[in-house]
Design a protein around this nucleic acid. Structure first.
Ligand SMILES: NC(=O)c1ccc[n+]([C@@H]2O[C@H](COP(=O)([O-])OP(=O)(O)OC[C@H]3O[C@@H](n4cnc5c(N)ncnc54)[C@H](O)[C@@H]3O)[C@@H](O)[C@H]2O)c1
Ligand SMILES: NC(=O)c1ccc[n+]([C@@H]2O[C@H](COP(=O)([O-])OP(=O)(O)OC[C@H]3O[C@@H](n4cnc5c(N)ncnc54)[C@H](O)[C@@H]3O)[C@@H](O)[C@H]2O)c1
Lengths: 211, 211
DNA sequence: GGGCAATTGTGAACAATGTAACACAATGCC
DNA sequence: GGCATTGTGTTACATTGTTCACAATTGCCC
């Protein structure tokens, strides 16, 4: 079923969601077809790059016309594995954790937080949204029975590596880490870090001469 | 004063904050000296890459010994422009906006949110932390008088580009954007986007075969 | 104070990524 | 139905980034 996908560069994979987002927007604007030129203008990148990226996965456009937005979206969603629902669990129900659970941006994209865990007696048993906070001991059971593949980490930095180790042991394959650490994970587990401070710190390099 | 810095690759600049974070941690652990080898193990990267990155900016290590953590930290902070305080303003005091203002992770790194803006009558005048929410009309004045160089955008996606345009007009040079859009900014303005959904969507590409 | 072990800094080789060029398939116009 | 136009997919080229390998330097030990 899957065409062999030899060696897709990681940078390309990182850009595909950008295309999905832009195409979704264009679709909402009522457009049916888009050229790599137009898409490139939206995303501030060269048309060549877009075509090259897409060519890793197949031929989706029509010469002289461009890309059917609906079709390309379907294909990209398929490629990225965005067709079904992804179940995630959250660890660390502090301020950030509660904000993440209440964030309405995940569900429309197919990411559902189905469980929340915390090590603190004070947190366990309380409700966040319509989730009950569970003790860490439930983690392996829930991951396996409910089929959770993604773990979201929102614990203090000092605890993050330990929590990540436990997630991996439980069978989690992807980790979205909000703690300001560079976590170690074994091969086969995918990590994405969210850290606004790092973003700011690289930004200031370019700003420092005109402060 | 500034040594000519010819062509530092952007990827290198993105990695420097990682070094700063790791070194800070090592310093707290009581270490004084670290080799590129050791640092590389922490950060899961090759020693050669670390040395190469640093070599764009000067010579900071001692052969046979490694790097003085304290000295290298000072140098990196200088290079990144992290020695002084950076003032930022936040636009969009909704749920996310309030969480950002209350986040305690910025201040210790030298980033201070000194003003908050919102377009809504309901928000203007309310207090968040020890900030009073201001109307958008105050933006140019505050940016100039108070010397704000960074704008943090936490408004709905549909409003984000407009808000960013106004920030840029007001003289803002760096933008930390939380809205799920790919903003356009003129040359000379630096943007960093924070979007956990994009992170998840590129993660699933690698997870989809073992869901 | 000279030899030894360690580790840097760096040019050069290699690899990856991005851009440009272009042949040609599809379309629509007359 | 030819013909001009458009914009793809692909190959060739240019740029950028990573790794390698080693001479140069340092501190330590005896
Ligand atoms: N990336 C971002 O945008 C961002 C924003 C805010 C906070 N953060 C980071 O997120 C983390 C949490 O921040 P916060 O303000 O919510 O902190 P918090 O103290 O409010 O919450 C942390 C929660 O984690 C729980 N916890 C601690 N150790 C645990 C363990 N071993 N297992 C399970 N649960 C554990 C605590 O009981 C607490 O409920 C910090 O690392 C912070 O730096 C990141
Ligand atoms: N990147 C992330 O981690 C993350 C997390 C949560 C939310 N978000 C995004 O952040 C944005 C805000 O989310 P939220 O849940 O706080 O929404 P919200 O509706 O609670 O808050 C939005 C605020 O922006 C204000 N606003 C609207 N238009 C404005 C304008 N033109 N100028 C000034 N202020 C304006 C509104 O009055 C409101 O107070 C959304 O784009 C959302 O997708 C991102």
């Amino acid at each position: 079923m899957n065409v062999m996908q030899p060696e897709v560069p990681e940078v390309v994979v990182l850009r595909l969601p950008l295309y999905v987002r832009a195409l979704t927007q264009l679709e909402r604007e009522g457009m049916n077809v888009v050229s790599s030129q137009q898409l490139g203008e939206r995303l501030q990148m060269t048309p060549a790059q877009i075509r090259k990226d897409l060519s890793y996965f197949g031929r989706f456009g029509k010469q002289g016309r461009g890309y059917s937005i609906q079709f390309l979206l379907e294909e990209l969603r398929e490629i990225l594995g965005l067709t079904g629902e992804w179940r995630a669990c959250l660890v660390g129900v502090g301020r950030l954790g509660r904000a993440i659970i209440n964030y309405t941006g995940f569900a429309p994209e197919g990411f559902t937080i189905v469980a929340a865990f915390d090590s603190s007696e004070n947190q366990v048993g309380t409700a966040v949204g319509d989730l009950a906070v569970r003790p860490m001991s439930h983690l392996p059971y829930v991951v396996n029975e409910v089929g959770v593949s993604i773990g979201i980490v929102a614990v203090p930095a000092a605890q993050a590596q330990t929590v990540i180790d436990r997630l991996v042991e439980s069978g989690i394959k992807g980790i979205l880490n909000y703690a300001p650490v560079a976590p170690y994970v074994p091969r086969g587990v995918v990590v994405r870090n969210i850290d606004p401070v790092l973003s700011l710190q690289s930004m200031t390099f370019y700003l420092k001469n005109e402060r």
